[in-house]
Simulated scan of single mutants.
Amino acid sequence: MAKKKDSTPRRKKYNKAQRLRDAKAKWLPTVTAKNIVRSYSKWYGVDLLCAINELEILGYKSSDNYKKQVELSIASKADAKRRRKEAKEEQDGALYGSDDTFSFIAGYTEGGAPFGTTWEEE
């Protein structure tokens, strides 16, 4: 049986040492991007904070303000994800609850009538 070919570019699988070596030798001399950090991030498949740190190792200095802005952006995305997850769990909990007739509502019929375990069955 033939092995399935991986379509991910090799450069996106590099570890830190390999990325730094490749960037110094091949990528930095040829890059013409306006935002070098974002370009590095996309080319090597790393997040912006990692790209900033590795470019600093290579000698490219980015402003402290930009680094703080990226850190805040990452933190706000994580916070938004956490809030969405909590809201979804809360909504699911409200969907399947209890009322005067049922101790556990397992779901609703197409007509909207609840079904589940009644208080008397418990």
Rank of each mutant, 00 (worst) to 15 (best):
residue 1 M to P: 11
residue 1 M to L: 08
residue 2 A to L: 11
residue 3 K to Q: 12
residue 3 K to W: 12
residue 4 K to M: 06
residue 6 D to S: 11
residue 6 D to F: 04
residue 7 S to D: 13
residue 7 S to P: 13
residue 7 S to T: 12
residue 7 S to M: 11
residue 7 S to A: 09
residue 8 T to M: 09
residue 8 T to I: 15
residue 10 R to F: 07
residue 11 R to H: 07
residue 14 Y to C: 00
residue 15 N to G: 08
residue 15 N to V: 02
residue 15 N to A: 02
residue 18 Q to H: 03
residue 19 R to Y: 00
residue 21 R to Q: 05
residue 23 A to T: 03
residue 23 A to M: 03
residue 23 A to P: 05
residue 26 K to D: 11
residue 26 K to C: 04
residue 26 K to E: 12
residue 27 W to I: 00
residue 28 L to G: 01
residue 28 L to H: 03
residue 29 P to L: 02
residue 29 P to Y: 08
residue 29 P to Q: 03
residue 31 V to Q: 14
residue 32 T to A: 13
residue 32 T to L: 10
residue 32 T to V: 09
residue 33 A to N: 10
residue 34 K to E: 13
residue 34 K to T: 11
residue 34 K to H: 04
residue 35 N to T: 02
residue 37 V to K: 00
residue 37 V to C: 06
residue 37 V to M: 05
residue 38 R to M: 03
residue 40 Y to Q: 02
residue 42 K to S: 08
residue 43 W to D: 09
residue 46 V to Y: 11
residue 47 D to N: 15
residue 48 L to K: 07
residue 49 L to G: 09
residue 49 L to R: 08
residue 49 L to S: 13
residue 52 I to K: 01
residue 52 I to A: 01
residue 52 I to S: 00
residue 53 N to F: 01
residue 53 N to M: 02
residue 54 E to H: 04
residue 54 E to C: 02
residue 55 L to E: 08
residue 56 E to M: 02
residue 56 E to A: 07
residue 57 I to M: 07
residue 57 I to Q: 11
residue 58 L to S: 13
residue 59 G to T: 11
residue 60 Y to L: 09
residue 61 K to E: 15
residue 61 K to I: 09
residue 63 S to K: 07
residue 63 S to I: 06
residue 64 D to L: 12
residue 64 D to P: 11
residue 65 N to H: 12
residue 66 Y to F: 14
residue 67 K to E: 14
residue 67 K to T: 14
residue 69 Q to I: 12
residue 69 Q to G: 12
residue 71 E to I: 15
residue 71 E to Q: 15
residue 72 L to N: 15
residue 73 S to L: 11
residue 73 S to G: 15
residue 75 A to I: 06
residue 77 K to R: 14
residue 77 K to G: 08
residue 79 D to N: 14
residue 80 A to E: 15
residue 81 K to G: 07
residue 82 R to C: 06
residue 82 R to W: 12
residue 83 R to E: 14
residue 84 R to Q: 14
residue 85 K to I: 13
residue 86 E to R: 11
residue 87 A to D: 15
residue 87 A to Y: 13
residue 87 A to I: 06
residue 88 K to A: 10
residue 89 E to G: 02
residue 89 E to H: 07
residue 90 E to I: 07
residue 93 G to P: 00
residue 93 G to A: 11
residue 93 G to R: 13
residue 95 L to K: 14
residue 98 S to I: 01
residue 99 D to G: 04
residue 100 D to G: 06
residue 101 T to G: 02
residue 102 F to Y: 15
residue 102 F to E: 09
residue 102 F to K: 00
residue 104 F to R: 06
residue 105 I to T: 10
residue 105 I to S: 05
residue 107 G to T: 06
residue 107 G to C: 04
residue 109 T to K: 02
residue 109 T to H: 10
residue 109 T to P: 03
residue 110 E to I: 05
residue 110 E to Q: 12
residue 111 G to L: 05
residue 112 G to S: 10
residue 113 A to G: 03
residue 114 P to I: 00
residue 115 F to P: 01
residue 115 F to T: 00
residue 116 G to R: 01
residue 117 T to H: 03
residue 117 T to C: 02
residue 118 T to K: 02
residue 118 T to F: 03
residue 119 W to E: 06
residue 120 E to Q: 09
residue 120 E to K: 10
residue 120 E to M: 04
residue 120 E to G: 05
residue 121 E to I: 06
residue 121 E to C: 01
residue 122 E to N: 10
residue 122 E to T: 11
